[in-house]
Design a protein around this nucleic acid. Structure first.
Length: 271
DNA sequence: AGTGCGGCCTGTCCGC
DNA sequence: TGCGGACAGGCCGCAC
């Protein structure tokens, strides 16, 4: 489900309810996520005050004085703020209950997500330390993409979806950004000019910031921390629009597979 | 080192 | 109505 805009929306949505709050206790109903929920989480975090909520790539970080929770929402995860007393449903696997009476509840039907605990700097954690730059950071621009892509033979769509190149571009936004930049998704990453990578970097920033402003994309059941849906779906130009007319030229949108993921593009507008 | 594939899970939808 | 198969927003680990 969640790409960067959804994670960012979640981060902003939950922050007012958790920052500065003391954790009363943790409930782990099912520890069997993509990686098992860290066994030390409950003991270490109980009684601590949450100091900050941050996002790095598609990871959410909850910082406390003694360690940090690293949360990944996988394909189907969502985090919501609820009264601790509200009954858990089938796929509600983890609660972080707060002294305020609220709890931060993870729901994840497919269990591709993760809830990890580290006593070290979470940015140094193995899963985060090799991530590429944030798309809104100074380190990310067209010349960066151009430089990293030299001698890379894979398709540009798969290149920009690699979180070690740039974080936050998932399957939906990869198709959208390539459409905005006018670049064909099958084009070899190493054979694209710096000029075109400049357009692509700007397109990535534009699409992601628009999506964040709209509260993310709700396809099935994305909700922000307060349970409100996102509205970006209405803005999608190519994703999920197979055979429908291109918004720019009217030609039918094409759907293909790249590495078992669906790709959508306009064969006239994207070269 | 870079590339491509399988696997992790459950739910939903489509065609027969 | 039931059933099998394909598909879904991510990402790691493994062979080659």
């Amino acid at each position: 489900m969640p790409e960067l805009p959804e994670v960012e929306t979640t981060c902003r949505g939950i922050a007012p309810y958790v920052v500065g709050q003391r954790v009363s206790h943790i409930v782990v109903r099912n520890a069997r996520l993509r990686q098992p929920v860290s066994p030390e989480l409950a003991g270490d975090l109980a009684g601590q005050t949450l100091q900050a909520v941050e996002r790095r790539g598609k990871y959410l970080l909850l910082r406390s004085p003694v360690g940090s929770v690293i949360i990944h929402l996988g394909m189907s995860g969502s985090l919501r703020i609820l009264p601790s007393s509200s009954p858990a449903e089938k796929h509600d696997h983890v609660d972080i209950a707060l002294a305020s009476g609220d709890c931060l509840r993870l729901r994840d039907p497919r269990r591709f997500g993760a809830v990890l605990w580290t006593r070290e700097n979470p940015l140094q954690h193995a899963l985060l330390s090799d991530l590429g730059p944030e798309p809104f950071s100074d380190a990310f621009d067209g010349s960066y993409l151009h430089q990293r892509s030299r001698s890379r033979s894979l398709a540009v769509k798969q290149f920009i979806m690699d979180s070690h190149i740039v974080t936050g571009v998932g399957n939906i936004y990869a198709s959208e950004t390539l459409f905005l930049a006018g670049i064909h998704p099958l084009r070899e990453a190493g054979r694209i000019s710096q000029q075109r990578y400049r357009r692509l970097a700007l397109a990535i920033q534009q699409v992601l910031s628009d999506a964040i402003a709209q509260g993310g994309t709700t396809l099935r059941d994305f909700y922000n921390g307060e349970g409100k849906p996102g509205y970006f779906q209405q803005q999608l130009k190519v994703y999920g629009r197979t055979d429908q007319p291109c918004v720019r030229c009217g030609r039918a949108i094409v759907q293909i597979k790249q590495g078992q993921r669906s790709t959508f593009f306009c064969s006239a507008c994207q070269r």
